[in-house]
């Protein structure tokens, strides 16, 4: 098990290989459909917020306020990443992301951007919202709450030992491409 701790430098990211199991510790930002479309259309980040060398988590969490009025994440697993395929590569390039956490994998454009700019795709177990939320220690901030609504807002979270699998590395390898090829092969044998 590889410990991936902030700051997430290009060197640390380049050292990761497809198939590595990692535990991530540091600050991450959630971002999904509305955020990716907005940023890709030239939308600006709020003052003081930067994604440089940061991780974006494809996730729309369930967040409630506790008795003291503080935000508390009560369920937070990954959402399907492929919907961000039209935007992700450009966002990696423009904002300097070092990793994307999600589920289901992404396509060739994102894989190429990971290779060119030094980024990885980390797969978390979809549906495992309770196990994953136990690794979220604190809500540091929330952005675009009014504009996008709670699930689509960008939540700044402190995570500790968050478990994930490197399924797309910065050297052009993708587990998703491999499984698609082998399963398509079996499928063709079954139907022909």
């Amino acid at each position: 098990m590889i410990q991936l701790e902030a700051p997430f430098t290009e060197e640390k990211i380049r050292a990761l290989k497809q198939g590595d199991e990692v535990e991530i510790t540091g600050v991450i930002f959630t971002g999904r459909d509305a955020a990716h479309k907005y940023l890709h259309e030239g939308g600006a980040l709020p003052a003081g917020m930067s994604l440089q060398n940061k991780i974006v988590y494809h996730c729309g969490p369930v967040v409630v306020k506790d008795g003291q009025g503080n935000w508390k994440v009560v369920a937070a697993g990954p959402t399907t990443s492929i919907r961000e395929e039209p935007y992700q590569g450009d966002i990696i390039k423009q904002f300097g992301l070092r990793a994307v956490i999600g589920k289901g994998g992404m396509g060739e454009r994102t894989l190429a951007a990971c290779k060119e700019f030094g980024c990885v795709y980390l797969h978390a177990v979809g549906g495992a919202a309770q196990v994953l939320s136990t690794h979220i220690q604190k809500v540091k901030n929330v952005y675009f709450m009014e504009e996008f609504g709670s699930p689509e807002a960008m939540w700044e979270l402190e995570i500790v030992k968050f478990p994930a699998l490197v399924t797309m590395d910065s050297h052009g390898n993708s587990l998703h491409r491999e499984i698609l090829a082998t399963s398509t092969n079996v499928f063709n044998q079954l139907v022909n």
Binding site: E21, C59, G60, P61, V62, V74, A75, A76, G77, T79, V125, G126, G127, A128, A129, Q130, V131, S133, T134, P151, P163, L165
Partner: peptide, 28 residues
């Protein structure tokens, strides 16, 4: 295996959700 580990996380998640009385998955 990765598949076995994944099922283990899934089982742990099912148990945790029941104990905490919270959503199994955030997408309800």
């Amino acid at each position: 295996s990765v598949a076995w580990n994944t099922f283990s996380i899934i089982e742990k998640n099912i148990q945790l959700a029941k104990e905490r009385s919270l959503p199994i998955c955030q997408d309800t």
